[in-house]
């Protein structure tokens, strides 16, 4: 671990607003006995992540949030969003947005690709803030304990999409729908507008090792585009399907298609609503 929770707390006090610490204090999570949950999340690191991301959220990407009241206040829920931007700032902004716009605050647990767990320091810091590896067992345990999962069904191909493919959803994986059906969780579709233009990717170079490729981008850093995060009405997978339907590939595909259509619709709505990439 780079540093213990007390140091995280101290740094948060210095760089973060008081509201950040207050949010973390009000966070409900299953404490496994030493202040951490079983996956390694600790509220002091959630607060630190919040404090680090907040200036980016407020001043750089100037995030606007729409429809956060659609996020259930409690119980298992899956957030399914489009993924883009070369660097996963969309995940970070969505994470802060949910923390800020839920009362009591809920920590949406980002589900990361396997290779993230192999990265030194990053894997530990991410785990402390609530990121979990995308194995079936991990997400099952989180939903069974009433948690909120943040899933990008496009996965790594989504974040690596080329600029010409912006706002075109890549292959839409179905695991999130199966999980939601099996564990009686509604799915909240999320359309993120802005991220797809932040760091135009023009080419990819495959490289050996855990990271799938080296992106070639038009800008060395993400541009200060404005983010618009649109939450749709929950798709009641917990009401429309029985848990046994999770074993029916056709019903799972149908549910995933409903989510995909809802996300695509939110993206179109967001693109229509915004005045420009930077405004």
């Amino acid at each position: 671990m780079p540093f213990p929770p007390a140091i995280a707390r101290a740094i948060t006090r210095v760089i973060g607003k008081k509201s950040v610490s207050e949010r973390a204090e009000r966070l409900h999570f299953p404490n496994a006995g030493h202040g951490y949950d079983q996956f390694g999340m600790h509220p002091d690191f959630v607060a630190l992540g919040d404090a680090i991301a907040s200036p980016v959220y407020d001043r750089y990407f100037r995030v606007k949030s729409y429809g956060a009241e659609n996020i259930p206040k409690e119980g298992p829920v899956v957030l399914a969003a489009n993924h883009s931007g070369t660097l996963p700032f969309d995940g970070m902004m969505l994470w802060v947005d949910v923390l800020r716009n839920t009362d009591p605050p809920r920590n949406p647990r980002p589900v990361a690709d396997y290779f993230v767990s192999s990265l030194p320091v990053v894997s530990t810091l991410f785990a402390r803030a609530g990121v979990v590896g995308g194995s079936r067992g991990n997400v099952r345990a989180l939903l069974e304990s009433g948690g909120m999962l943040m899933i990008f069904p496009e996965g790594t191909p989504g974040i690596g999409k080329l600029y010409r493919d912006r706002y075109k959803l890549q292959e839409w994986r179905k695991g999130h729908a199966e999980l939601a059906i099996r564990h009686n969780a509604p799915i909240v579709p999320v359309g993120i507008v802005g991220a797809e233009e932040q760091m135009p990717q023009i080419a990819r170079i495959p490289i050996p090792g855990p990271v799938p490729y080296l992106p070639i981008t038009a800008t060395p850093l993400p541009m200060p585009v404005r983010y618009h995060v649109h939450y749709g009405e929950p798709i009641p997978t917990h009401l429309d399907y029985d848990p046994e339907d999770a074993d029916d590939p056709e019903k799972v595909a149908e549910a995933a298609r409903r989510v995909r259509d809802a996300v695509q619709e939110l993206i179109h709505k967001g693109l229509d609503m915004r005045e420009g990439v930077f405004t």
Partner: peptide
């Protein structure tokens, strides 16, 4: 392993 859950049930 990287691909396996941290929280281990008996079918792991």
């Amino acid at each position: 392993s990287l691909e396996l859950p941290v929280l281990v049930t008996e079918d792991h």
